[in-house]
Amino acid sequence: MKIKIIKKDDLKDSHYLKVFYSYLEEKKIEIVYKTEECDLIVTFGGDGTILAAAQQVLAKDIPVLAVHMGSLGYLAYTRDSEAVYVLDKFLNNDYEIEERRFLEVRHNEKTHYALNELVIAKGGIKSTLLSVNVYANNTLINKYRADGIIVATPTGSTAYSLSAGGPIVHPGLNSVSLTPLAPQSLNARPIIVDGKEVLSFKLDSRDNDIHLNIDGQIHFKVNKDDKIETRLSDKVVKLIKPENRDYFMILREKLKWGDSI
């Protein structure tokens, strides 16, 4: 067994982290640095750490054991105190996998993948509003005049999209959500569309200061005449899920979903 460990940059060694490393030494599990050589990726941190790991599993179809040692974290199902227990279950082939689908983003001739979201937005506070026409299979959905638009996977529905007023979408659904950022019109509302449809965008901006951001990991400036298309991909991240842990439990725990205000 060979594993690759990806840790949050400012993560300090904790008691449970030391216990985890001791377990690896006891079981003679080798730590490697190349994704192509490993059988499992283990992340220590929050959702940002998992997003970084997600880009690496595109190169090799291997599962991810995500250990929560960050701030909030919807994707890191495993608590730090459970890390050794869950890894031991994995080694004994006693585990469940939850698959989360990527968003395939095509910009001109290049293809990128987002686990959470694609964001098309104006460049800064002084930049002018964007005009974004959104099409599904070449049929106009709507024209938005806003700071930008978020196209989120079901996984990303509890990330930036949720902060912008988007809906919570169960990760098992084949769908994407469109959420405008600070739209000029008060009746411009988020919408959920079929993930099989190809979404395309016609952009306009008086100062042409338009940026594309993928999961906060990849970002660059685009031109209003660039070709941008996206759809839900068949590529997935395979997350190891601890027993007795489910999506709705995470919502209740992290969002305090259903608690009295």
Score class of each variant (00 low, 15 high):
T155Y: 03
G195K: 03
D204W: 05
Y113G: 05
L186Q: 05
T128C: 00
L140I: 14
I120P: 02
D94L: 05
D194I: 12
Y160N: 14
L115C: 13
N133D: 15
L186V: 14
G195S: 00
E109T: 08
G195D: 01
S177A: 14
A164Y: 04
S131T: 15
R100D: 09
V119T: 13
R145L: 02
N137D: 15
S131E: 13
N142I: 12
V176R: 01
R206L: 11
P171M: 08
S205H: 06
R189I: 10
P180H: 03
V132K: 00
H170I: 12
P154T: 12
F201C: 13
E197Q: 15
P180F: 01
L181Y: 02
V176L: 12
V176T: 10
L181E: 03
L115D: 11
D207M: 06
T155D: 05
I141F: 00
Y144P: 05
Y135S: 11
S175G: 08
L162W: 00
A159W: 02
P167R: 08
T139L: 08
N133F: 06
F201I: 13
G195N: 01
A114G: 13
K122T: 13
I120Y: 01
S127F: 08
G123L: 06
L162N: 08
E96F: 02
E197H: 13
Y135T: 11
P183V: 13
T111C: 09
N137M: 09
P171L: 03
S161E: 14
P154L: 04
G148N: 01
L173K: 11
E109P: 00
S157M: 01
T158R: 04
K196R: 11
G156L: 10
N137V: 11
P183D: 04
G156A: 12
G148M: 00
I125V: 11
N108Q: 06
H107V: 12
L118N: 05
V119E: 07
F201T: 13
L115A: 14
V169K: 07
A188E: 04
E197M: 14
R106W: 02
I191L: 05
K122Q: 08
L130S: 07
N116F: 04
S200R: 05
K126W: 06
D194V: 12
S177Y: 00
G124I: 09
P190M: 09
S161P: 11
G165D: 07
N116T: 12
T111F: 01
A152S: 15
N137K: 10
I150S: 07
E96C: 01
L181A: 05
N142P: 06
V176A: 04
I141P: 00
A152W: 00
V176Y: 00
G195R: 03
I149A: 14
E96T: 05
E99T: 05
Y135R: 07
E98Q: 09
Y144S: 06
T111W: 00
G123I: 11
L103I: 15
G195V: 04
E104G: 11
K110A: 14
S163W: 03
A136S: 15
G148V: 07
L118M: 10
E104T: 13
H170W: 07
